[in-house]
Amino acid sequence: MMDKVLLAGFGGQGVMFIGKILAYAAMLGSLEVCWIPSYGPEMRGGTANCSVILSDEEIHSPVIDQADAGIVLNKPSFDKFLTRIRPGGVLVVNSSIIEMDKTRDDIEIIAIPAGDIAHEIGNPSLANMVCLGALLPKLKLVSLDKIEKALDEVVGKKKPELYEWNLTAIKKGLES
């Protein structure tokens, strides 16, 4: 079993971070995992993306042609990655700032006003976490308790208050 996930947005929207949380969650669950950033000049402004492969067996090719799932946080990412989801896959769209001028009927699109929800929680920078929450039920290999452990591992030890913020955002995304 495998989850191939694409994550994309503006630099600074926390794309790499949700990728890392997914990767840690998988590792803590004794899964195989591969976290692949886009790097170099792309890191400095513009669109950032990374991909994560979660698997219960050895991961050979780390190249994702067609992903099982994706999160897009901004319009350029939506334009770029809408076609990169396999038929039957799922794409979470931050509808607060993405105007969906096109669509696909062979994939499930979850449009969620993640920016607005994050704003309501009181921390606009958590749109990424809201989207991660919305995606969670669609992933085969990772569940909320693993994500909680990963959050604890990555941010909890250094900044306990951030841990709470992030968890709240993920749960909001899950509920919606």
């Binding site: 890392k20 195989e32 995992v33 591969c34 976290w35 692949i36 950033p37 780390p62």
Partner: peptide, 8 residues
């Protein structure tokens, strides 16, 4: 790719 990729 190998240099930047994260794996356990």
């Amino acid at each position: 790719f190998l240099g930047q990729m994260m794996e356990p």
